[in-house]
Design a protein around this nucleic acid. Structure first.
Lengths: 133, 133
DNA sequence: CAATAACCTTACGTTGACGTAAACGTTATA
DNA sequence: TATAACGTTTACGTCAACGTAAGGTTATTG
């Protein structure tokens, strides 16, 4: 589990935009919907390494096809302070759901990879055949 | 590679909707954008097993976070008749791109699964601790 | 010191992937 | 025979996830 508050560092919006290949609009959007909460120096956003980690997790989620709300849920799992037993149980439920979905994805991916490998082989074969004409 | 024309069978829109848990609107939408092309008996759509397979592939793509356009690309890879060398080469390129993306996903998933396992363990631990109070 | 760059807010626009409603035609069954 | 149950088209609505101006402030640099 990545710790959301590890090193002490500061990043500008441009730093992170360059590092992760997103637009500033995207980063402000994530803030608008409360996914990241950078502090401010005057009006200017100052991102901590915790913020950076959150962004990293959001983008990983996106690569997996998660919605931002899904990612919010998952990221919330990383935060402590869920002392309430009911909350803990519902959290475990959510975690298991996400894990099930991910296992389904693993299955899908391995199947799709198989298909693509075969497709590639077929292509290469067709090229060879073509060359013989 | 699944063959897109295997068994001879017919399905109504409701058959497939029930089997795959989608709405008829969704299926008509896939037809609107040319992802599936069922034949007609009068006005009524008649789906073949090839159509059914295409739907299955589309939905697998969706689970992986692919757009419908991505899925179209991949499904097109399954069709033969790409005799043109240029097409074959561009197809191989596309296949390799998709494979790279999928390998990235595999990596992401295994990391996320690790995180979630740890999160679950932490929760269970917290519950135990709580019980001792 | 002027200009360029980097930051900001507000707000309307866009795209993908359907949802939803209206209005209608066939077929099965009670 | 009427009333579901299934099928159809057309068309506007919606929601997420940003894109894209427009217009303004602050910081740096030639």
């Amino acid at each position: 589990m990545p710790n959301l508050a590890t090193t002490l560092a500061e990043f500008s919006i441009t730093d992170l935009r360059k590092e992760f290949g997103v637009t500033t609009r995207t980063m402000r959007h994530y803030e608008e919907i409360g996914l990241i909460n950078p502090s401010r120096r005057g009006q200017t956003r100052v991102y901590s390494s915790a913020d950076r980690t959150r962004l990293r997790l959001i983008l990983r989620g996106k690569r997996l096809g998660l919605s931002l709300e899904d990612s919010r849920q998952i990221i919330d799992m990383y935060e402590p302070g869920k002392t309430n037993i009911e909350q803990l149980n519902s959290l475990i439920g959510a975690i298991r759901q996400q894990r099930e979905k991910l296992n389904q994805q693993l299955d899908d991916i391995s199947n799709l990879l198989k298909d693509l490998k075969k497709a590639e082989a077929d292509c290469i074969n067709a090229l060879k055949t073509n060359r013989q004409n």
